[in-house]
Amino acid sequence: MMRPRQKRMTRGDLLLAILLLLVALAGLVRMASAPAGARVVVSDGERVLYTAALDEVKDVDLEGPLGVTRLRIDAQGARILASPCPLKVCMGMGPARRDGELLACLPNRILVEVVGPQAEEDYDLLSR
């Protein structure tokens, strides 16, 4: 049996392929520049306990006077997954993702704030 002859790529196919490649490259460039976005700042009300870019997908365990509060940062924003506090109000607050949005667990002295985006260059840690 004869195999069907493979058609050669047309000019339209080539243009479409280039277009798709450009879209893919633009997506990668966007991913690379994402760290300039908002940050999550966690404090106990007085001192900063933890800070990270809002686009870093991770779970963080934060220790307070009652025990460990688990914070999740992902595409939905920052939200409290687990808490040792009695009423679990903080877990019901849902995600925070816009500048100035807050989550708080007062019994465990955990305050989560979304700040930015900032125009300035980033740093890993703050010496204070």
Binding site: V41, R47, V48, V115, Q118, A119, E120, E121, L126
Partner: peptide, 10 residues
């Protein structure tokens, strides 16, 4: 590496 700046820290 960088002078000045205004990163909000808290």
């Amino acid at each position: 590496t960088k002078n000045g700046g205004s990163r909000k820290s808290s």
